[in-house]
Amino acid sequence: MSDIYISRGKFPEIIGQLMARYRVYAPVLKGEYHEFAKIEKTEEADLGYQNTRLSPKGLFHPHAERMFEYSLVKDDPQAGILKEAPKDFSPRVVLGIRPCDAKAFQLDDVNFDTTAYQDPWWVRRRQTTTLIGLACNEPCGTCFCTSLGTGPFDTAGLDVLLVDTGEGYTAQVLTQKGKDVVGITSGWESVSRTVSEKMEGLRKSAEDSLGRQFDFDPIKQKDMLELFNASFWDEVQFACINCGTCTFLCPTCWCFDIQDEVWGDKGDRIRLWDSCMFPLFTFHGSGHNPRSQKLQRVRQRFMHKLKYYPDKYHNGAACVGCGRCVKFCPVNIDIREVVRRMSATCVCPA
């Protein structure tokens, strides 16, 4: 299917048509930052945003999610039996997601959707969700997607890619799901030559503004233990306060914890985000903690993203360069600096 175009004035109609058939999630301005939320009115969707503060991973892997419910009533024959908590899996559209965040879902799939194990909630949400991306015309100063094999106009993981060309949007339909979604909307035109040239110009200027900020490839070649024992971790970890900001804002951090919450004679089994920055993350029942030191935890986060994941899945780094951790780390630990250190030629053992 070739690219199609719609003028800015008509675009709200497209959103309206989508809302008639799907639950539509879009960036909504809440306070000073945007956040993906279900929209009730077309004008709530604000596509003039740079990126959301929290990554949209919560749409598929919520911060806290009720998995099961159970009753503890003594005489109830159903007592103690876990029942899946009801959830809404009706079709939905995520509108205006950035290519980096869509790519992140693909990277996370290797954890939640494998041949050996399929996480029912993640998989069902992925199946019933159509991702309509929005290319980044003006990436942030903290972005570095192009250095990790993705880019501001990357289509990986998307069903449709929109490009804001000023007077309107072009749409590149990428999958069957994308076709279905675009199929229920009307008002599209064919893309004129001027628009398509403009789009190409935007892509080039966005990619050029990002440049290549570091060379990730040397890390793949390096010996894991050499990196593990490298002396620079000591300097990298010093400032870290071991909060969960980086992991909670990160689109590719998928780790979770499971808790039972009981109130009165009812209970829930809840899954919630966890962070390798927290001391409890690896705390054993025996009282032993294999990662009791801050250095070990900081190293784990970077090694997982940049060495263990690429080595295990041959899928590139578990980082899409969205720059959220760089922007919001309270003590300015910059993953770009860490990559530069990890890929430097001499990583001398401590």
Binding site: I241, C243, G244, T245, F248, S275, P279, P330
Partner: peptide
């Protein structure tokens, strides 16, 4: 309401040095 329970406030605080926080 916007709190994401990252504990940055706690961890940035020089006074929060308990070996095990009540949260944990």
């Amino acid at each position: 309401a916007p709190c994401i329970r990252c504990y940055a406030c706690r961890n940035a605080c020089p006074l929060c040095y308990c070996p095990t926080c009540f949260v944990d």
